[in-house]
């Protein structure tokens, strides 16, 4: 059956088209909408997008294959990207990948046999200060150790992606020493980063206590 977006997403397409002076500029946003609905960019999706934007299918396909986040083959229910670039590797990225491989029962680049997970190696995900980290679907999970990683994957398997994200996912973290507001839990990386919970410190605060410091000057 030919691919079509839901009426709600069609409305989003109309909105996106108003943002650019050229129709073609909506290509990436529309591909994103399609992938969110379909899980991957199938040949039917390519055909649909090409017709919608009055482009040839080869142009659409050429764009799809250029970007690593567009899948041109089906993937598992959850996509796990494990960062293996230098900052993560310096803090154990390789061990994280190996644990994922044994836990999911598949090598990087493959899917688990139950189709629940696809494991992929990622190049730098720009979370270097919170290394090692993985991205699962839309969310980052940072300051990992093997025990925390196990809990995240187990929660995904048992309670689903949303529950795991609510409990463990992180965004750019900041821990103000005086922030006692429990309601802002999500503003603090949920995993206590080894060895300090503070991800951002501003220069105007006094330098860290002398006992923490290898004073050389």
């Amino acid at each position: 059956m030919a691919f079509a977006l839901t009426p709600e997403r069609e409305q989003q397409v109309e909105d996106v088209l108003t943002r650019y002076p050229e129709r073609r500029a909506a290509l990436l946003p529309i591909l994103w909408l399609c992938q969110r609905q379909n899980g991957w960019i199938s040949p039917d999706v390519v055909k649909y997008v090409a017709e919608r934007l009055e482009l040839s299918t080869s142009i659409v396909k050429g764009v799809v294959t250029f970007y690593t986040m567009f899948f041109d083959e089906p993937v598992g229910e959850n996509v796990v990207w494990v960062c293996r670039t230098l900052s993560c590797d310096l803090r154990g990225g390789k061990a994280i990948q190996e644990r994922l491989e044994s836990k999911l029962g598949c090598k990087a680049g493959h899917s688990s046999s139950d189709g629940k997970f696809t494991l992929l190696k990622a190049e730098c995900l720009a979370a270097c200060g919170q290394a090692p980290m993985v991205q699962i679907n839309d969310h980052y999970y940072e300051n990992l150790d093997l025990e925390l990683l196990d809990r995240i994957i187990d929660t995904h398997a048992a309670k689903g992606a949303e529950a795991a994200a609510a409990e463990f996912s992180t965004f750019a973290s900041f821990h103000a020493p005086t922030d006692g507001d429990a309601g802002s839990r999500s503003s603090v990386s949920s995993a206590p980063p080894p060895p300090s919970r503070e991800a951002v410190r501003v220069a105007t605060q006094p330098p860290p206590p002398a006992d923490e410091k290898g004073d050389e000057s």
Binding site: G129, A199, V202
Partner: peptide, 20 residues
């Protein structure tokens, strides 16, 4: 001006710091 510095890898407190 000032800018945001980042540090990752083998330090005690990796993260972001604003400084001149």
């Amino acid at each position: 001006g000032v800018r945001i510095y980042g540090v990752s890898g083998h330090v005690k407190n990796p993260g972001l710091y604003e400084a001149p």
